[in-house]
Design a protein around this nucleic acid. Structure first.
Lengths: 174, 174
DNA sequence: ACTGCAATTGAGACTCAGTCGCAAATGAAG
DNA sequence: CTTCATTTGCGACTGAGTCTCAATTGCAGT
């Protein structure tokens, strides 16, 4: 493989006098083989099952390099840990995350990006990065979610929850 | 204190047959006493120094209730742990976060909110909550950041970093 | 190809935020 | 004032991520 990103990564390492080891290459390949959002441990397992021995520490260290080189993004999708995703050079996107099925949908809305710049100007703020995520229910899950909601307490609106912290369900009022 | 939020919280507890204990009240008061973004441990310390004995577990449990009742927001500001902030009923805001000084600036841009709705419609997505954060350098820190940047390697653009993971600084090319 | 050595790795101990289980304590309905 | 479900504190636990250090390995120079 000799993608644009591969070159960027090689040059990035070179520039800082770092080595392109077989572990780094393997992790790079795994991450760029498919377009998914993966967790560190997931990558560890994938590589291990591919007979490639690699330690957890190395996964994290290499992930830092990939993120720092700009070709991989580190995102918080759930409420625990990070997910890593390949970034296509020059492209940018934000995320729609389904609370039901976990699906992650990427979106890009130039008008929002412009408004962000405007907000920054308003506050004299120099933006270096941003994260913008909408959580809710995706098209596929909406019918099911609506059915289940119907069974629950009337008057209790479908509400956002900070995370998957589990609280006792609301008892029916007697 | 008998604020709007106090009432919401009391009713919320009532509705689920939960008790308004002195610990819960104390945590509520602490959180609503000032408009700041606080970490769980910070709240623990504050309450402890105020002669109020309370355990870490209770802090977390109560925070869950406050968040679930909708009067407190749980936000990821740094890259580790959550921060909690009072939410004024009916108001909403997003965050500008300074990488240099840690300052958190709240902003609200209706046009962005509208565009979000538009994006959701496009994907048939039902949004329940969102988080939108811009990271960068605030007005106060910009002069200093610029000075320091001048001392570093030329041609190395001021770049966003996923988090505060520390990587060796780029050595000057010889 | 061989050497030298700084960069890198793996293993496992460690940290830190947050969670859990349980016996003792307590708020509130009667 | 009683009763008892809810709540609390304690301390053990979990899981993601980090650190240390001895052993290994790329790679620049020969």
């Amino acid at each position: 493989m000799n993608s644009r990103e591969q070159t960027i990564f090689r040059k990035y390492l070179e520039r800082r006098g770092l080595k392109l080891t077989s572990e780094r290459q393997a992790l790079f390949d795994e991450l760029f083989a498919r377009h998914e959002h993966m967790e560190a441990d997931e990558l560890l397992v994938r590589l291990r099952t591919k007979h490639k021995k690699i330690s957890r520490a190395t996964i994290y260290r290499t992930l830092d390099l990939l993120v720092d080189s700009g070709i991989v993004g580190r995102v918080r999708i759930g409420d625990t840990g990070y997910r890593y995703e390949r970034l296509r050079a020059g492209e940018h996107h934000d995320h729609l995350i389904c609370n039901e099925c976990g699906r992650v949908i990427e979106f890009f809305e130039p008008a929002i990006e412009n408004l962000q710049d405007e907000v920054c100007e308003r506050y004299g703020f120099l933006a270096l990065s941003h994260s913008h995520q909408l959580r809710g229910i995706c098209r596929q899950c909406r019918p099911r979610a609506a059915r289940e909601h119907a069974k629950s307490v009337e008057g209790e609106p479908l509400r956002a929850r900070g995370g998957p912290r589990r609280l006792r369900p609301v008892p029916s009022p007697r």
